[in-house]
Design a protein around this nucleic acid. Structure first.
Lengths: 337, 337
DNA sequence: CTTCTATCGCTAAACGTTTCACTCTTTAAT
DNA sequence: ATTAAAGAGTGAAACGTTTAGCGATAGAAG
């Protein structure tokens, strides 16, 4: 019906009031009751909507948060994003999502892109270990929230899970069932979450005074193939582990693939604990025991701390939220004699 | 180093040229070689970046595309989005992603939200069958590209796959292997892709003059549970099907869960063809035959037609791109005697 | 009847661009 | 030599808001 969007000017004209008064009303200022009614009528009739761009120019806010992640084809990440978006939109913020496709150069470029889009803040799951691109953002006084892992020398809010105790608790479940030779398929040595997950493995062994065979510790790269390959390596050992712990979702997929191919009987021949993704765990037979990360809580926490910073509340800066994981015990592990 | 962002004014001051000249240079106009060098120097020294918001106010463009989808926790969708984003960013567009969480009211609200954010276009995989929210967008002359399914009474570009022939080809593979009683697990009757996939099933039966037992056609809702439940229903029939075709990813998951639980031997007791998600198909033992949709092509096609419309090129409007699927035959189907 | 204090509304400047219309050079064509 | 055309630069208005700062009105207090 209306060709060109109505502006605040049109509302002013319609009501006979000045632009400033309309603006005041829009932004919650006091106007006379009769004018209020008049303005509301005008807004309805003219289908007036605030032009967020013009407002942004004036207020120096874009009401936009950049979300920079290593991959969009990863349910752990997209689930978190979904929850972030739910919270932010309630406060009128939109989220610009940038996927750096696990590429440092792209990560750098997309950071610049987000800056050029004048985002009010950035929530990112860093890919690079080097936080230079983030430092540039912080220098401009744009708040940043880090997801999943901290960054050396970068001082800002972080939301992550207690990876160390996640592993500790998972492995503990195996130990109390009598397992002594437990294999672990880690991610790359230089990835934070991978290091933490290994630490938990080491610590629980120590606490139960179980000797560690370094041969049982395998390093992959968080990709399907390495899960597949390393599970095979572990099973090809002369002295096989009786249980294996796989430390992320993709490698868990690969490990299951290998197990299926070899026809290994779970849990009789081998106990196994995987990571993340509940759907997966349910369809595998027997049902898979897994470490579950609280995606919703991660997303909501990150969004809320960002909103707090955007309001200028810098209390407890920088904060680190270390959320708890859950170990779901199902049929894929058993006690050994 | 620099506190407050440099503006075009600062560049003008630094170079002694006028604002208009700087603007001209930025936008690719001709300036004298010596001025060009001078401006470039100024831009570098002052770390000047165009303020996209101010530019947007003037040009009436936000250089932002809204992407509205039913769920972010769905790899089929996020994979498409990832490819859309890759293309759009190359032309300077950012993508605002809104997830309506399979909720009509939210879909409506988020459409309004995107409009209020002044997006230059919207790419959406509609959830509601009713296209009213989209009509409102088109009325404002904002281009829309529909993903995955058309909308009745909505006249705009659409990118989808040839669901009908996807099913046709999949079922044909079963028929030429001698199957005559083939079960199909469909989505809801009122969902476009579901209808098309069923049509392919019906047509290939007709072409091969195979009678259709209506009992073999089961309607679910594209969720895991219905795949699980309906597969059980099919196997509980007195006269079981010898093959089953499951028409989306989630229901395929559910179906596999049921098969594992019942200990049905694949493909000896039952041949099965699933849908989408290559990863899944590889880890299931035996490897699963699936219909694969070309996610990358879908995303790229959608992004490119959007860019074309944004440039004002309305040739062949509205266009419908019906992309081809692939049937991957693996170990989960066999010939029957 | 002043004076004070709220309350409400208005004028005008500002945000950082783009772009129109114009001037002034320079080069090319006759 | 004259004219035309093209090239380069400029001033100023405009995009749609927000927001100081000021003025007007009116009721309360003295």
């Amino acid at each position: 019906m209306i060709d060109i969007a109505a502006t605040i000017k049109d509302v002013a004209k319609y009501t006979g009031l000045s632009i400033a008064t309309i603006s005041k009303y829009i932004n919650g200022g006091n106007v006379l009751e009769k004018n209020k009614i008049l303005i509301e009528e005008a807004i309805k009739v003219l289908d007036f909507k605030v032009n967020e761009i013009a407002r942004g120019l004036k207020t120096n806010k874009s009401m936009t948060i950049g979300v920079l992640i290593p991959s969009l084809e990863n349910i752990f990440i997209t689930s978190i994003i979904s929850h972030i978006e739910s919270i932010l939109i309630q406060s009128g913020y939109s989220t610009i999502i940038c996927d750096c496709k696990e590429n440092r150069k792209l990560e750098q470029e997309k950071t610049e892109f987000l800056l050029s889009k004048m985002v009010d803040g950035i929530i990112t799951m860093p890919y690079s270990n080097n936080g230079e691109h983030i430092k540039r953002v912080l220098e401009k006084n744009i708040p940043v929230v880090l997801l999943d892992r901290p960054l050396k020398d970068v001082n800002c809010d972080v939301v992550l899970v207690d990876n160390l105790n996640a592993s500790y608790n998972a492995i503990e479940q195996l130990i109390i069932r009598g397992h002594k030779r437990i294999g672990i398929i880690c991610g790359s040595k230089d990835v934070y979450t991978s290091q933490e997950r290994l630490k938990g493995y080491l610590r629980v062994h120590e606490d139960y005074s179980i000797e560690i065979d370094p041969e049982l510790i395998k390093y992959g790269d968080y990709q399907i193939d390495s899960g597949y390959r390393l599970l095979n390596e572990l099973l090809d050992m002369e002295s096989r582990p009786t249980a294996i712990y796989v430390t992320n979702y993709e490698m868990t997929l690969g490990a299951i693939m290998a197990i299926n191919e070899r026809g290994v009987s779970i849990p009789d021949e081998l106990s196994i604990i995987g990571f993340d993704n509940i759907q997966m765990a349910k369809i595998v037979k027997p049902t898979l025991s897994i470490v579950v990360q609280p995606m919703q809580q991660i997303g909501e926490t990150a969004a809320n701390i960002m909103l707090k910073r955007l309001k200028g509340d810098m209390s407890n800066y920088p904060s680190m939220f270390r959320l708890k994981t859950e170990v779901l015990i199902r049929d894929s592990i058993t006690s050994i004699v």
